[in-house]
Design a protein around this nucleic acid. Structure first.
Length: 591
RNA sequence: GGGGUGUUAGCUCAGUUGGUUAGAGUAUCUGCCUGUCACGCAGAGGGUCGCGAGUUCGAGUCUCGUACACCCCGCCA
């Protein structure tokens, strides 16, 4: 019976009328008394089925009994609609199926929300009734696009001589990076596996094993607080290559992302993508993942206000702070009220205020302009190359707060000023990251990327005299790919000698003993002819979210979790039986 | 760990200064209807105003606590 079934959305009129059999969900029903129209839906789309009571009263009666979301099986004749009954809003709107058989295969409760329209439903309801929301076009399309993207990526990578190889989920907990999800071991009581934050070590081992190009589309797990672009489990397009340079990897990824953009949006992305150094990104944009959909940039102004009489500037500079600013030609779009809101908002970034003034045809006025000397005003006009009309905002504090504040505010302000193009996709490579950063809280150096990242060749000799002050100067061979201000991937050339790897561990405060305990297999493997290698991982969920212009990563995941890590459909996580705990030798200490 | 917003009918939402019996659209149910396509028309049912305290003659509305969802900071690459 199902063998000859065709798909609703794929019925076309090719020549004369033909017989079809269909099975699907009742999307909508229009009962006009003597004639009943059912819009039948399956994964491909919708087709109108007609039941004429004058031809079969019995079929019409069954059709009448079929309610929203009932599953029906229909046989009928495909025919052209008359010109005046064509529905231009439906892809199959020029044909319909005249039914001569109908069977109700299963009933449905009244759905808690309408399936047939795009009306918003609350996310809570969506997550609880995920199987119903996935019947709706919006989510269904995202899931189908995700599938298409994954297939396109596989095809591309296989064509580029990559092997797809799986790596274990049950693995060892490693220091550094995010908090691990841990899994108790029954066979080794009191011991735990950790779910991978990424397949990092295993893919490097695969390089030593001689698989010179590896990839995997794989789940990764990080037990950290969630955001709209962060889930506890997420999917990476993970890859690693031997005998490779950063330029080669960048070229391969540009090819891959070009295909992704084409597959999802139909647009052609221009390659090569722009590249900037980490240092330039921090200076111009205040963050390492800048959104380049707007030209608004941060401008260093500390030197201009070196002798400022304005107390706010003076005291901040005296404490070793910096002053950066940004100028926007807002064409009157930004109101006094919005500026007040900005001032309140910057507090979340740790800023104490958000000083500003206006530039109007040669005159600096309003805001803090009365505290600024003529000389300083002239320098501001020159530094920002002001013409016409503009608003100039400043942040003054220690460097981290200034960059944090302005990197966020430049986007908000540019958007409010109409200077951010929402329809653009702006890719950007960020390169030359520092190898380490100093962790003020724990008073130690840590890897900016991860401990297996290779330093730039010429900087290896500087490792010996690294201090908190010059830690920035030692660069790594790491690169991040950014799309519209979101990091969608990152990678590096790896260390491939035991000597250098051990040295990096020791700088990170990982003792020889600990290194042996955690990574002995890697250190050992590096001794057996480890090829030069490097790789990258792309965040599949984020790429989809941005290309599909969805607000959240959850909108491109079939079964996502809430911000508190709950699955509202299955109610995970949940307790386990005492028996299970006993088997694992685990005791739960209730808070 | 911290800040913000929200929670009213199955769903989406309105609800004024604290004041009579808490509304709308949609969905559902019943009846009518042979070319609809968000079909139409007539009627009906549907509420622990998230939960718990408090203030008050009186609380959907004010206060406090709490739960959940979302956004953000910290955290996370």
């Amino acid at each position: 019976m199902f063998k000859e079934k065709t798909y609703c959305g794929e019925i076309i009129m090719d020549g004369q009328s033909k017989e079809v059999s269909l099975a699907g969900w009742v999307d909508r029903k229009r009962d006009l008394g003597g004639i009943i129209f059912i819009e039948l839906r399956d994964i491909t789309g919708i087709v109108q089925v007609v039941f004429d009571s004058s031809k079969s009263a019995e079929n019409a009666k069954i059709a009448d009994a079929a309610k929203s979301e009932y599953i029906i099986y229909v046989k009928g004749t495909v025919r052209k609609r008359s010109a005046d009954t064509i529905n231009p809003n439906l892809p199959t709107g020029d044909i319909e199926v005249e039914a001569h058989y109908i069977e109700i295969l299963n009933k449905s409760l009244v759905p808690p929300f309408p399936i047939d329209i795009r009306d918003n439903i609350s996310e809570e309801v969506s997550l609880k009734f995920r199987y119903l929301d996935m019947r709706r076009v919006t989510l269904r399309d995202a899931i189908i696009k995700r599938h298409l993207l994954m297939q396109a990526i596989r095809k591309y990578l296989v064509e580029n001589r990559f092997h797809e190889i799986e790596t274990p989920f049950l693995n060892k907990s490693t220091p550094e990076g995010a908090r691990d999800f841990i899994v108790p071991s029954r066979l080794s009581k009191g011991e735990f596996y950790a779910l991978p934050q990424s397949p990092q070590l295993f893919k490097q081992i695969l390089m030593v094993a001689g698989f010179d190009r590896y990839f995997q589309i794989v789940k990764c797990f990080r037990d950290e607080d969630l955001r709209n672009d962060r889930q506890p489990e997420f999917t990476q397009v993970d890859m690693e290559l031997s005998f490779v340079t950063p330029d080669m990897i960048i070229e391969i990824i540009e090819g891959l992302l070009k295909i992704a953009v084409k597959e999802i949006t139909g647009l052609d992305a221009a390659t090569p993508f722009k590249r900037i150094s980490y240092t330039e990104a921090m200076s111009k944009y205040g963050c390492d993942a800048p959104d380049t959909r707007t030209d608004v940039e941060l401008v260093e102004c500390s030197d201009i206000f070196r002798d400022s009489e304005f107390n706010v500037f003076k005291s901040a500079l005296a404490k070793g702070g910096i002053i950066k600013g940004l100028a926007v030609q807002d064409n009157g779009r930004i109101s006094r009220k919005m500026i007040d809101d900005y001032t309140a908002h910057v507090r979340v970034y740790g800023a104490k205020g958000f000083p500003m003034f206006k530039y109007n045809n040669g005159v600096l006025e309003g805001g803090i302009s009365k505290f600024i000397s003529e000389k300083e005003k002239n320098e501001i006009v020159q530094r920002f190359r002001l013409t016409g009309q503009a608003l100039i905002f400043f942040s003054v504090d220690d460097e981290n707060i200034v960059n944090n504040t302005l990197s966020h505010m430049r986007i908000k302000i540019a958007e409010d000023a109409g200077l951010l193009d929402r329809d653009k996709f702006c890719f950007l490579w960020v390169t030359e990251f520092p190898l380490f950063e100093y962790d003020q809280t724990n008073k130690r150096f840590q890897s900016k990327h991860h401990p297996f990242t290779a330093p730039v060749q010429g900087d290896i000799e500087k490792l010996g005299n690294m201090t908190i002050k010059n830690v920035d100067e030692i660069k790594s061979q790491a690169y991040d790919i950014v799309l519209n201000g979101t990091e969608i991937g990152g990678g590096s050339i790896r260390i491939n000698t035991t000597e250098l790897q051990s040295r990096i561990f020791s700088i990170l405060g990982i003792s020889e003993e600990e290194a042996r305990e955690k990574f002995s297999f890697l250190l050992e493997a590096l001794k057996y002819g480890a090829p030069p290698h490097g790789g990258i991982a792309l965040g599949l969920d984020r790429i989809l979210m941005i290309l599909l212009k969805r607000n959240s990563i959850r909108d491109v995941i079939a079964f996502p979790k809430t911000q508190s890590g709950q699955c509202l459909m299955s109610n995970a996580p949940s307790g386990v039986t005492d028996e299970q705990l006993k088997e694992l030798s685990i005791k739960v200490i209730t808070k």
